[in-house]
Computed example of a mutant assay.
Amino acid sequence: MSLLELTQITRIYKNGQIRIEALKDINLKIEEGDFISIMGPSGSGKSTLLNIIGCLDRPTSGTYEIAGTRIEKMNDSRLADIRNQLIGFVFQSFHLLPDLDAQANVELPLIYRGMGGRERQRRAIKALESVGLGERGHHLPSQLSGGEQQRVAIARAIVGQPRVLLADEPTGALDSKTGENIMAIFQKLNRELGITIVQVTHEENIARYGQRIFHLLDGEIDRIEEVGR
């Protein structure tokens, strides 16, 4: 059984008389431990697809299963549970709370789980250590570089031990060297911890850190490219 399985997924947006078919009959299987990149020009449906995979949006038609559970008809509360338990998110903008230090930012998802303070602290420290920031836990975001802030965001995404890490342009706000460092962390998480990674990127060199690249065009999968790394 695939960890993520999308079958004939279509997403249509309507604005008055205007009908936009953002995704058209997408069929996609992602196995546990995969590292997948999604590429395509602006308007190709990349972010829409990632939002559906991340249970942030619902398909207009088709079915989506995550870990064997169909989600397209779940209510908002159940979808929130799925996101909190199974999925970690990393975005181009780091979305760190400026008044909280790195460790407190990382602990946030665990607060929503109702986890006790001591266990939250232990997990947050461990997550920060896994991205090389074990000594920076009490620094505010303003005291960290862009690359360090993104690493805090990654630590926050993995602190709940998700099975899937979704990344939307994770290196888009970073210089090339820092972007490579972030991709090295992604590879480590994928290879050593077995976290399944799905990233959207417009950068060819970043996409090639994945095992496969799904090229989207006009809401459809145009081709699938195997990457020899």
Rank of each mutant, 00 (worst) to 15 (best):
M1K: 10
S2F: 03
L3Y: 06
L4R: 07
L6Q: 03
T7W: 10
T7Y: 09
T7V: 15
Q8M: 13
T10G: 08
R11C: 13
Y13H: 13
N15K: 10
D25F: 14
L28Q: 06
I30R: 14
E32C: 02
M39C: 14
M39H: 15
S44G: 09
G45R: 00
S47L: 01
S47W: 01
L49I: 11
L50R: 02
N51Y: 04
I52S: 03
I53F: 10
G54V: 01
G54F: 03
L56E: 01
R58I: 12
R58N: 13
S61N: 06
G68H: 06
G68R: 05
G68P: 08
T69G: 06
T69N: 15
E72L: 04
M74W: 00
S77N: 12
S77F: 15
D81C: 03
I82Q: 08
I82D: 05
R83W: 11
I87H: 13
I87A: 08
F91T: 07
Q92D: 09
Q92A: 03
L96H: 02
L96E: 02
D99M: 04
D99G: 15
Q103P: 07
N105I: 04
V106F: 03
E107G: 11
L108V: 12
P109K: 07
L110Q: 06
L110R: 02
I111A: 11
M115R: 00
E119Q: 14
Q121L: 12
R122D: 01
A124P: 04
I125H: 10
I125M: 11
L128T: 11
S130K: 11
G132P: 01
G132W: 09
G132H: 04
L133N: 11
E135I: 03
R136D: 01
H138P: 10
H138K: 14
H139G: 02
Q143T: 10
Q143W: 11
Q143M: 12
L144A: 08
S145F: 05
G146E: 04
G147I: 02
Q149L: 00
Q150K: 02
V159A: 05
V159C: 02
G160Q: 01
G160C: 00
R163Y: 13
V164A: 09
L165D: 13
L165A: 07
L165P: 10
D168C: 12
D168F: 10
E169R: 01
E169Q: 01
P170A: 06
P170M: 01
T171I: 00
G172A: 13
D175P: 06
T178C: 00
G179M: 05
I182Y: 09
I182E: 01
I182C: 14
A184E: 15
A184H: 09
I185V: 14
F186P: 08
Q187T: 06
K188F: 10
L193N: 06
G194V: 13
I195D: 05
I195T: 04
V198D: 10
Q199L: 15
T201D: 15
I206K: 07
A207P: 07
A207F: 08
R208Q: 11
R208E: 12
R208D: 05
Y209P: 10
F214H: 13
L216Y: 00
E220C: 14
I221R: 06
D222Y: 06
D222E: 08
G228I: 11
